[in-house]
Design a protein around this nucleic acid. Structure first.
Lengths: 239, 239
DNA sequence: GTCTATATACGGATAGAC
DNA sequence: GTCTATCCGTATATAGAC
């Protein structure tokens, strides 16, 4: 699947994101009309990610947010009760969207190899479409309250489990070698994260999202299919 | 090389770290006696990493730091001129130590495979010995001033270049397959970072530093030595 | 629904006692 | 060399006008 095909089928625009936020906090948002509410939530959402991803959420003041969004400080408080609530609102919406997309990805593909490729591609494409949120989510996770932090960690682990499950299935079916599925899933997830954490680097080097996805798929499948213990095999040791 | 052997030869204690900080800022530190200066720098260093890695450097107040270190606010200002200077002091010292260790690692091993393994192990062991610093450095890099941020990015790229250079050499010598050395180095570095960014996860799963290092070495060498393009090779496509 | 003005509190940094 | 007390700027959040 190409990135274009992916974005066409998944609903991942900024408006979709803010509809998700609104649905979960309909009673706390003062604005009655959905049109108005979503419009302003988009301004707030965009401004929050922009300022936060530059200087950090903690360092972002309400004045910053007011300037960047074009809304007054008073108006901002009609959409969320404080900075912490704003953080949790954004984190929660992204988490739910991520869960929905990843669940669908696991059911894409018949063989273990196809399934693994499907999960890897889905995550990389998803993190491309929502890159500012993924970066934000990763960097600000530790500023969440206890409960929300727990949920964030759980979300991370769910992705990893999806990968590990596919690898285990491949081993059971005898298609994959006897690799350590836990460690393999861990490092694959590390590769997925690199894409949204180091976006600037890859952009500068003109690595497209498809090329990166294919590279990771190849490396992961290469390892799972062959499961090499190559030390000493490729080159003789010096004596 | 085991982790024990590594820590024995490299000087990476907290005291060594603070000696490095002191040497670079001898004139700005008010305390005259080296004994006193290093002792208090250790208190400050430890407290800064502890509080920062929990709530973030920005959110850490001078009052927090005072409480955690046991020194009064006034005393703190005798060791650094402000929060920003403290940040740069810690970042600079760690960067110099990292550079020193990594340079040495590149010259360890004769064949490309050994060199690659040496660089990977050195980085993982180093980040294990200085985990709080590596985590801190990663998370707070974007709060640095322009010049210091540039240096931090350059440090990151240097590690990546070391890896890429070894891979290129292996390809020239015909030992490694024709892999994309830039992307390969990138994802390997992602795996190295996962070790110090997700330390808690690996600790809970009882993955030792040696096991993780060997796993990454195997995966990297497996890919470089064989350079598979496995899609469609291991399993037939559905038609 | 949105704005301005302001109450209240907290943080960084310094002065000067001991 | 280290501490306490304090200044001053700035942050969050609210009240009430429009």
């Amino acid at each position: 699947m190409t990135y274009r095909q992916f974005t066409r089928q998944a609903k991942l625009t900024q408006e979709d994101f803010c509809l998700e936020m609104l649905a979960a906090h309909r009673d706390e948002v003062k604005a009655k009309k959905e049109r108005t509410a979503v419009k302003n939530l988009e301004l707030i959402f965009q401004a929050t990610l922009k300022v936060s991803n530059q200087k950090g959420f903690q360092a972002m003041t309400m004045r910053d947010l007011s300037k960047a969004s074009g809304l007054s400080i008073g108006a901002l408080y009609d959409y969320f009760s404080g900075k912490e609530a704003l953080l949790e609102m954004i984190q929660g919406a992204g988490r739910r969207i991520t869960r929905r997309v990843m669940r669908q990805a696991v059911s894409g593909g018949d063989t273990p190899s196809e399934k693994l490729a499907s999960v890897i591609r889905a995550h990389i494409y998803l993190s491309e479409a929502m890159q500012p949120w993924f970066f934000f989510s990763y960097m600000e996770a530790r500023h969440l309250g206890k409960v929300e932090k727990q949920r964030a960690v759980e979300g991370e682990l769910a992705t990893e489990r999806h990968i590990a499950e596919v690898i285990k299935q491949g081993k059971r079916e005898g298609v994959f070698a006897d690799v350590d599925h836990m460690l393999t899933a861990s490092v694959i997830k590390g590769m997925l994260q690199d894409w949204y954490l180091k976006r600037g680097k890859y952009a500068k080097r003109r690595v497209s999202v498809e090329r990166y996805a294919e590279f990771v798929v190849n490396m992961a499948l290469g390892y799972c299919l062959n499961g090499l213990e190559p030390i000493g095999a490729g080159e003789p040791e010096n004596e």
